[in-house]
């Protein structure tokens, strides 16, 4: 009985699927799917190496500090970094005094309550604060940016396929649209052609426009546009995954221990089974 019912159910499902398949196949032959323009012109992120790559990856603190400067002087005009606190900057090599100064001189103050009147107010940031948000809310952000929303950058290298390579490619990927690009895909007003962006036209104004845009301290590589893009991408890897070095170090310790323990477990296992031919 069970098998009879199963057989009928099976025939039914197979029939419905076969009908779907035939319909799909007919459509596929009659009207083959066209490659979209995005598909044709979109490019995968470029290969770019960072010190934090791979199982031995670590942070290059000089680079992260340069990247922080690029963020502060360029990106922070529109992009928040809301999950990072000023005190976190100690991890990339800033001293406590430097952090206090960075927080106090930040281009935005922290929302607070006036202790006398109880009204909304602002106060200078302190080390324990998160980096203050650029806009009060999404509506304000869109209103200020031609209806585009500048995303928070705290997790950007984990929140995009391609990670830091995507950020780097996007920053260095602005170019003139190719001649063969159809007219309806050409950037409209306020948009810029960038083949690394999913729909090719990006609302972000090219942020890194000139070499030396951010003043790097002596002893650092020259602040070319490529170098600045690399540095800020590296900084954003840290912002998204500040525990990366701790994770790698603990990982090696744990895995070496486990290999040793597993080898011993293997020997003990062989040992115990020895009398069972």
């Amino acid at each position: 009985m069970v098998r009879l019912i199963a057989f009928l159910v099976g025939i039914g499902l197979v029939g419905v699927l076969a009908f779907s398949l035939i319909t799909g196949a007919v459509n596929f032959i009659a009207d083959p799917p066209q490659a979209t323009v995005e598909h044709e012109f979109h490019e995968e992120p470029r290969d770019v190496a960072f010190a934090s790559d791979g199982p031995f990856g670590h942070f290059d603190r000089q680079q992260l500090q340069r990247g922080f400067h690029v963020y502060r002087d360029v990106c922070a005009a529109c992009h928040s970094l809301g999950l990072v606190t000023f005190r976190d900057l100690e991890q990339i090599g800033f001293s406590e005094a430097e952090i206090d100064a960075i927080a106090a001189q930040w281009i935005r103050e922290v929302p607070s309550v006036n202790p006398e009147t109880g009204e909304a107010d602002t106060r200078p940031a302190i080390a324990a604060d998160r980096i203050p948000a650029v806009y009060a809310n999404e509506v304000a952000a869109r209103a200020a940016n031609n209806n585009a929303l500048p995303p928070d950058l705290s997790l950007i290298t984990k929140a995009r396929e391609g990670g830091a390579a995507y950020v780097y490619s996007l920053l260095t990927g602005y170019q003139n649209p190719p001649a063969e690009l159809p007219a309806e895909n050409r950037p409209g007003p306020g948009l810029y052609y960038n083949p690394y962006f999913a729909n090719l036209n990006l609302a972000m104004t090219p942020p890194l426009t000139a070499d030396g845009q951010v003043a790097y301290a002596a002893g650092n590589p020259p602040a070319t546009r490529d170098q600045m893009a690399r540095d800020v991408s590296a900084f954003l890897i840290w912002a998204a995954e500040p525990k990366l070095e701790e994770r790698h170090a603990l990982g090696w310790a744990v895995i070496i221990f486990l290999i040793f323990a597993t080898a011993l477990a293997w020997l003990a296992y062989q040992n115990i089974w020895r009398d069972r031919h």
């Binding site: 790698h248 744990v254 486990l258 597993t262 477990a265 089974w273």
Partner: peptide, 27 residues
């Protein structure tokens, strides 16, 4: 002790895999 020993070895391999994923390929 026969299968506890064999499982001990299996547990070791399992934990190594878990550690590789957790520490080096977490996402």
């Amino acid at each position: 002790p026969y299968y506890t020993a064999k499982d001990g070895f299996g547990v070791g391999i399992f934990l190594i895999l878990l550690a590789i994923m957790t520490f080096f390929l977490p996402n």
